[in-house]
Design a protein around this nucleic acid. Structure first.
Lengths: 263, 263
DNA sequence: ATCCGAGAGTTGTCCGATGACTTGCGGGGA
DNA sequence: TCCCCGCAAGTCATCGGACAACTCTCGGAT
């Protein structure tokens, strides 16, 4: 691997490690964080490798063990490293899906307005994934899609539709062949169920519309028609987005009568 | 005080630990992490609010101060909370662009194969943003685009093209009107410069092709033609992706079956 | 050859103390 | 009266040490 001309950015990560220039403007945790990150960026530590023990890292980075551990936890939250009790701290595989998966803890905390911004992204990506799936999905995958559809249509219980709905979309995402895309759609999707649109007064109508959407998507994929699949998936995501937007005026109140939508 | 602790496991505690599922005993840091997250999710702490001091949180969550601080750092790395020295720890604004921006520290660490997976996503999103920009960008924004283009074309120094290139794409992203989309493109973009494609033997040709791409994109946006803008932006991203892919096959191992990865 | 226990190595957790920074309050001077 | 300054309380930042919990290897016993 001589090729990757790896240019470590010179933003604020120069001269880490020497205690003489202990810049008072940089906190100890930042020193440890950037120091560890630098070790990985420069491939001194490679994916899957066990890192030196905390005591050595403390010595090299010139921070206390407490500060070092806080930096370690930050990188662990970002799925860059993975501490194992009693064994050591390991660099993760650094796969794109892992990195993106680090958002799973936080998207649930977004207010509805921020969530809707993510839904525009989701709509575009879901559409793209469906197009790819139309070209790549296996026959057995397509059969799985229809199995999910039938399972969803067989019940009107919102809780029972959750799992097959997840599987349906996950199957399409996986067929896209891009793990990063799959992970991103996975992160964005589950939140749509925190607001339980099926419990609205129009729940029955909404569920039927959703079922119809799923059939159209599956048909397009089965017909190997990427454009139709993309269109259908975008429409489906747009529907969800529209229903969700109904929650905007007052939080938690169904928008039957008090819908003062401004968008 | 002596609360029996929150035991509502079956609510929203999914997808955060991919380990082999040993949840019989929960570590102290996990208790603190989920406790804090739960306070925010249930809106006991709202965006922008100052959190209780660490001593109180330690008492309530029943963890030591060290473990609590590690949990705090994890949420801080995810941009959910923000500690301020001497003042207190505050819940962030919880905007989608903040959450997505937490990836900025990690994308630089991805190996090239993972980066290429992100580039497929980037291509789709850049295309969408360009289409939106064609419909929404102001006249002054369009003038800025051309100013960036001229600045880029005026030099052949890779370092000098970096800034205007950033501004060009950032302007289009901002014109999309979606802060989350803007942040995501911002996260994905800068990495393209860590591999300095302009320093390749074909650098001159590549740069000219890139300049041409930028002109086509700007023309389409100026003509208020979303479809043309989307196409041009997708083509531009695809070009970058192709050049970057040139770094891939480098090896001491013969590329049998293209690394087995289902592209 | 297999099983198992001891021991070294490593991370997890807690405690106490001190430094650094912010903020608000009140005193002193113009 | 008004403004500036300094003090003090509150809070986070950092350090050092100690012990517990866990993993893994190695050597002995069966």
């Amino acid at each position: 691997m001589t090729l990757p001309i790896f240019r470590e950015k010179s933003d604020d990560s120069v001269g880490w490690g020497q205690s003489t220039g202990r810049d008072s403007t940089v906190s100890a945790v930042d020193r440890a964080l950037h120091g560890l990150r630098h070790m990985i960026a420069t491939e001194r530590l490679v994916a899957g490798q066990r890192m030196p023990p905390e005591s050595e890292l403390c010595d090299e980075l010139d921070v206390s063990r407490g500060s070092l551990r806080e930096a370690i936890r930050m990188l662990a939250a970002l799925r860059v490293i993975e501490p194992r009790h009693g064994s050591g701290t390991y660099v993760s595989q650094l796969r794109s899906e892992d990195i993106i998966g680090s958002l799973s803890l936080t998207v649930d905390l977004l207010p509805l307005t921020g969530l809707l911004e993510l839904y525009e992204i989701r709509r575009v990506l879901e559409s793209h994934a469906a197009a790819q799936a139309a070209a790549r999905m296996t026959e057995s995958g397509i059969r799985t899609l229809y199995a999910c559809i039938e399972e969803m249509e067989a019940t009107s219980d919102p809780a029972a539709t959750f799992a097959p709905n997840q599987r349906f979309h996950a199957e399409i995402a996986r067929a896209s062949g891009n793990p990063a895309l799959e992970a991103m759609l996975e992160v964005f999707r589950p939140r749509s169920h925190n607001y339980q649109v099926y419990d609205l007064p129009e729940g029955v109508r909404i569920k039927r519309a959703s079922d119809d959407d799923h059939r159209v998507i599956a048909e397009a994929i089965a017909n190997r028609d990427p454009v139709a699949a993309a269109t259908a998936a975008a429409a489906h995501a747009a529907h969800t987005e529209k229903w969700l937007r109904g929650y905007l005026p007052d939080d938690g109140v169904p928008p039957s009568g008090a819908a003062g939508n401004s968008a």
